[in-house]
């Protein structure tokens, strides 16, 4: 049991890490990672939603009739997302302005729905919540990493603090859309290269 939980917990950090190995949730990963703090905020918001929705859906998995399960999941997820949105407006107003439409869009985030359908609907609440935490953490770390790379190279700062000497000329393309594709592509390639070198078995997607 504990062994299984541990496996579930670590899976989200490498074997199932969302934007790279699962290749889900790319829309926010491309759009909002212009700075490390945005990536961190988005990741934590998603981690909260996926953990809570996994827990609730798994607790209700025997009550919800199969034919209306997706509708029920969406209602539950939408409620959680709205709560996150209200909380952010109340306590992290500037961040919520920055993330804008991407917070409400967590409702249709494939990671959340994918974990609900693929894991929470088949497992008891505790492992489901552990799975949510692990996927959420994996997503948070990945988004913060992407945000860090883009912010450091594109704006010469990290979490808003300058890291380079004043003479550094920022590569401004890194904070615009092409920079996001390049960063994610390179990171994805590196992860695959590393996995292949270690002889890991993996299926992309």
């Amino acid at each position: 049991m504990t062994q299984n939980l541990k496996l579930t917990l670590t899976a989200g950090l490498w074997k199932r890490v969302p934007p790279f190995r699962l290749v889900l949730g790319l829309c926010p990963a491309l759009a909002i990672t212009t700075s490390a703090v945005n990536g961190l905020g988005m990741g934590l918001a998603l981690a909260f939603v996926v953990t809570m929705s996994n827990g609730i859906i798994s607790a209700l998995r025997n009550v919800i009739p199969g034919k209306v399960r997706i509708a029920s999941y969406i209602v539950i997820i939408a409620t959680l997302v709205s709560i996150v949105e209200i909380l952010m407006k109340a306590y992290f107003f500037p961040l919520s302005e920055q993330l804008g439409i991407y917070i409400p869009l967590i409702v249709v985030n494939c990671i959340v729905l994918g974990r609900a359908e693929g894991f929470a609907s088949k497992n008891p609440p505790l492992p489901s919540m552990v799975d949510g935490v692990s996927i959420g953490l994996g997503y948070t770390i990945s988004l913060t990493l992407i945000g860090t790379i883009r912010e450091v190279l594109g704006a010469g700062s990290w979490f808003g603090h300058a890291v380079f000497h004043e003479s550094f000329e920022p590569l401004s393309f890194m904070v615009s859309a092409p920079g996001a594709f390049v960063t994610i592509g390179v990171l994805l390639g590196l992860q695959n290269l590393f996995s292949r070198w270690r002889g890991e078995k993996f299926i992309q997607g």
């Binding site: 034919k67 209306v68 209602v75 409620t79 709205s82 709560i83 909380l87």
Partner: peptide, 19 residues
């Protein structure tokens, strides 16, 4: 189906209104 979905929706709206 109707009862479960209505119940879920009702509880969710209540929670949201409170928040």
């Amino acid at each position: 189906m109707v009862v479960v979905l209505s119940l879920i929706a009702g509880i969710c709206s209540a929670v949201l209104t409170m928040a």
